[in-house]
Write a protein that binds this DNA or RNA. Structure first.
Lengths: 237, 237
DNA sequence: ATTTCCCTCCCCAGAAATAGCGGGGCCCGT
DNA sequence: ACGGGCCCCGCTATTTCTGGGGAGGGAAAT
């Protein structure tokens, strides 16, 4: 069993295109004998991507109705670190109930386990297995395979990121220490006046730093510069 | 070996306090026969926390000098999803070099592998093992134990979150869609005028959203609000 | 059914940011 | 020893943002 997991992961790591990821979800479905396996990014700004075993009709409907906004599984994963058993979630709420009914009649399965995955720059994705099963047997399944699924979801996302856009890691690094200080203080809510006082320099000098940083980052204004610096990891909260 | 991993993880899952996590890093160090094992959160917004095997002197110096801001390992992890081998990082740069020298003389070890860990609300933590070793043997060690370390870092963080403060799941979530739109556009560099045009609303209305978001987030000003929203994962890019 | 939140719009005065100009000194690498 | 990057300071002008008001309609939840 563990040997099999390593084989699966090795296959994942050898994947060279998104088609291989699509193959992988079917392999995983067969291997774990579940009804469905889904990997999908939940990024409203970036281009969405998914590798899944659901039928096209359900996928189409999910996208069309923008169900990601009301799906309690998505909501729950977004707020948690540890994988989420669907049964733990809050299914009260009108829209949630009707969504659940529709999902089950679409053959999604009444049980599911979803793994939240977070990457750089606010990337968020989910890896889900679902099946028709009783509470007990599903509980057993999930605790037996929790570690497996964690690893699979990691490597799945690693590959998905690889096939995604190019890294723009080049941008960073070029800020001077003072520029980093300046942006950090602004990101922490200080005004230019306060920040200059904190650093013990004139407000004008601070402005020069901000301006320099803004130009280096190609930002339109100070807020943009702070946002870019944050999302590139040049400054930390 | 695998049995041992499961034992370790089981112990982690039974942990009932931060002291148990502190014990765990020493257990892990002995088990993997490395020089140091470190788990630490990299979030100044939240209260910082760490469980590690470093000596107090080095830890004190790291905090005092705010090395997290220049540590290339932190920067690298922040920008990547997959675990980072220290040797892959960019150690050019004056401050990085002097930091490296100081770290090695503090007994940190010349080789290291760091796992980035991301949780809800922009939580960011790192799990690191380090040792004195040659490039080849370290390469072998990391590829042998990559999966182990991924799992350990996951459960470590799960417990750390558990022992952390109360969930501030309340903070996020409470931004309305329009408020998210407004902050997103500002974070992308648009001025209020442009953003209001993009959304097809008056600039005044946009201001109301920004103001509402600012109050909800407890931010001092717009830039602060954008920074908070970004680092809490409420908006992207 | 009432409350509560969200969305939309308007005015105004003061504070802050942007965009220019100018100056000097330090350290580093070529 | 030179350019280039970083660090520090001064001034002015224009544009933009901030932080208070107030007001109405609609959707959703209790």
């Amino acid at each position: 069993m563990n040997g099999k997991l390593e084989t699966l992961i090795a296959r994942l790591q050898e994947a060279s295109s998104r088609a291989d990821l699509q193959d992988a979800v079917f392999l995983l479905r067969d291997h774990y004998d579940v009804d469905h396996v889904v990997y999908h990014s939940v990024n409203q700004s970036e281009e969405p991507y998914a590798a899944l075993t659901y039928g096209e009709d359900w996928v189409g409907r999910y996208i069309e109705k923008d169900y990601a906004r009301i799906d309690p599984v998505v909501q729950g994963c977004y707020q948690r670190f540890h994988p989420v058993n669907w049964k733990q979630l809050d299914w009260s709420g009108k829209s949630a109930r009707s969504f659940l009914g529709e999902a089950i009649s679409a053959g999604v399965g009444n049980q599911g386990l979803s793994v939240p995955i977070r990457g750089p720059n606010g990337q968020f994705a989910m890896f889900t297995v679902s099946a028709k099963a009783g509470d007990d047997s599903w509980q057993r399944f999930t605790s037996d395979h929790l570690s497996d699924l964690l690893l699979v979801s990691h490597f799945m996302n690693q590959k998905a990121l690889e096939f995604g856009g190019p890294d723009d890691r080049t941008l960073g690094r070029q800020l001077s220490p003072r520029e980093v200080d300046a942006l950090s203080l602004l990101a922490n809510g200080q005004s230019r006046g306060q920040a200059s006082e904190t650093l013990g320099i004139s407000e004008h000098t601070l402005r020069v730093y901000i301006e320099a940083a803004r130009l280096k980052l190609g930002a339109q204004n100070t807020t943009h510069a702070v946002a870019l610096a944050l999302s590139h990891g040049l400054i930390i909260l």
